[in-house]
Each structure stands twice: as structure tokens, then as C-alpha cells.
Simulated scan of single mutants.
Amino acid sequence: MSWLTAEEALQALKTKPQTLYANVSRGRIHAKPDPSDPRRSLYQASDVQRLAERHAGRRKAETVAAETIRWGDPVLPSAISTITGGRLFYRGRDAADFADVATLEQTAALLWNGAEAFLSGSRTGNTSPSLQAAFRALAGRVASDLPSLGRSQAALRREAGGVLCTLADALAPGPPEQPLHLRLAASWRRPDAADCLRRALVLMADHELNASTFAARVTASAGAALSAAVLSGLATLTGPLHGAAWQGVDALIEAASALGAEQAIRRTLAQGNRLSAFGHPLYPDGDIRALALLPHFPLPPQFAAVRETGEEMVGERVNVDFALAAMAAAFDLPREAPIIIFSLARSAGWLAHAMEQIDSGELIRPRARYVGPAPETDRRT
């Protein structure tokens, strides 16, 4: 494996240092500290060459097809949400504008093509939000819920409401007559956070065909119960490259508290780690969800320093993972608050996509491009 200096990588890419840092942050180029000077980084030559060829328009057809499923062209038709022109839309409605006035229940009704706002209920004695309780509750439903295949959309929408209730009992326990953002704020004893929680839940409810949503659609396409689809989505969401990216943000803030923002960011990049606080491939001008959420609470000083320094160094604006972590710090919410908020909100989207996939009647079954040892031929005569 060969490595390039920053100067060599910049010459091959014909780009600015900020773009190189952004590609490292996004995981497109792997980096490691230079053994001769730990303050500098080396960049994997094959990653640099791949990006250089892409920019030059010399990709082979099979490479284009393989990358379709990785930040590529849409691979499934959907009428639920889309990202275009730097904005996020739910069934044609601007999600950032919708977050000014809507609740998660109303967002679920919109995503599910329902005529009225979804009403939540509570059936358990949970006293605090718990991701573990959500997994247990969903697993219990999977064992008894009916398969989705052959059932009407009306029946599925009723069941979707029940599944969301089950998840809400674990993630936002509280009186059934209260909206979910108020239940969540009360369970954390932070009533002043209620409006920001409402906005965050609406903004995080769906995001096109992301990894967890794709997992939910694959499960639903096999005819499994809606609860199974949501369980698949929730399991996928816990990955550090998806819903658990807030942990990387927290780690960066902790490093910045000890070293200063600039040195913490430099060290993270030099170690070849992603900067999960900055950039999003679908929002070249800034993650609209972060831009819509950040003005509604005071940014803690350390977060403000990391934001200002990082946006200058990396050339990317902070994203929604940063915004959720900053909001949790601003309101002194529990450390796992970002993944709780993300899970509760995105369950509405998973259910919408599961029902849409079921209605299509199609099984999601892609083929693999085999790159292993050549198959043995039959030598029998």
C-alpha cells in the first residue's frame, strides 16, 4: 500500500487543502500520521487516484454501477422525501419550514399519507428514555405481529401507529394525551428544551434512502412485520457512521477542551479519523437540518469554537450530528440524548418507507459483482 504527502495528493486531485481535508472527513480518502513528522499526514494513494479519475470522468461502467448504491443515483422510487437544491422535502413540503409549526405526530401523518395527525399512546411503566427498552419492545412485537404481505394500506397504517406507540413508550415515556416532544422533555426534566426537541424530531423524521431506511425497506420487502422493519432500521442506526455519529462529535469536543479546537481537529485528521461533525455529501452548502435547528438554542462555547475553527479548516459547515450533540449539551440532556431523538424521529420515516415498499409488491434482491477466486469448472467427462 502506497501513501502520498499532502502536496502530492493535492497535485493529483488539482484541488484545495480544504477539499482534501473534507474528503478525509467523509471517509473517501484514508489518512495516517507521517512517521517522520506526526504533525503531518499521509494519504492513501489508491483513494486519491480513484477520486482523481472520478473527477476526470474516466470511471468504467461497472464502477458507476457499483457506486450507485454508495451516495450515487437513486436506486428505488419513492414519493416520501427528497433532497434537492440543498433542501429536504417531505412529500413536497419543505421540512425546515414544516419544523417551525409541526409535531412528530403531524409529520408521521404527512409521511404516511394520512389525513389526520397521528395520536400517540402509552401503555408501559417506563420512567426514562431507554434505547435498550426500545429493542426489547420491538423484538417482542416481531414474535407476534402479522406479516405485512397481503394486508391493506389502511390496516398497515393502523399497525404503524401501534408500532410507533411501542417505540414511544420506550423512548419518550409519558401520558398518552401529550405530544411526544413534551413527553420527552418531561422525562428528562427539561421543559425548556421542549420546542427544540419538537423541531429536531420533525427535522430527523426522514431523510430519503439512508442506510437504516434501506435496511427497513429490505426487511419489509420480504413481507416481514412492520415491527421487524423498524427493528432493522433501529439496529442499523446505532452504527458510528449513522445515528451514533454524535459520539464522534462528543469525542472532538472533549479533545478541543483539552487541546484547543484547531489542534484537536488537526490531530483527528492526522490520525486518519473522520470528522463526523462537518459536512454531508447531499448538502454541499450545509446540512439544512443543522441550519434549521442551531439558531434555536445558545451554542455552548466549546461547540462554538469547534464550529468556527472547523468550518474554516475543513471547508465544510457543521451537520445535524453536530447540532444534536450541541443541543444535548446546551440543555444538559443525558449523553445518549442524540440517539434517542434520532431513533424516535426516524421511526416515523422507517414506517412510511416500509409501507411504501410493501405496496410496491417487490422484493429487494440486488446481485453481487463477484470478485473472489474463479469458480472451478466441471472436468467430468
Rank of each mutant, 00 (worst) to 15 (best):
R190M: 09
E356S: 09
T15M: 00
W112Q: 07
A115F: 00
L197M: 12
R28I: 04
T381Q: 02
G223E: 05
A160N: 07
D97V: 12
T82V: 13
S212Q: 11
L104M: 07
E53S: 14
A137T: 14
K16L: 10
L171Q: 02
Q132E: 14
L171Y: 02
R335I: 05
R58A: 10
W246G: 01
G310W: 08
L351C: 06
G233V: 06
P175G: 06
P74L: 03
C196S: 15
E7F: 01
F322T: 10
L164P: 01
P74W: 02
L119M: 11
P366F: 08
Y90G: 09
L231M: 13
A368G: 11
L237Q: 11
F342V: 09
I29Q: 00
L333D: 07
P334H: 06
L110V: 15
S187R: 09
R189L: 08
R151N: 04
W350P: 12
G162T: 12
L13V: 04
T107C: 05
S128N: 00
A337W: 01
R136Q: 13
K16Q: 13
A193Q: 10
A185V: 11
R151K: 10
A193K: 11
A255W: 01
V314S: 01
F322V: 10
V202Y: 10
W246P: 02
R365W: 08
T238W: 00
E254A: 15
C165G: 01
P373G: 08
Q153C: 02
I69K: 01
T82R: 15
G121I: 01
R158E: 14
E177V: 12
A108F: 11
S152D: 06
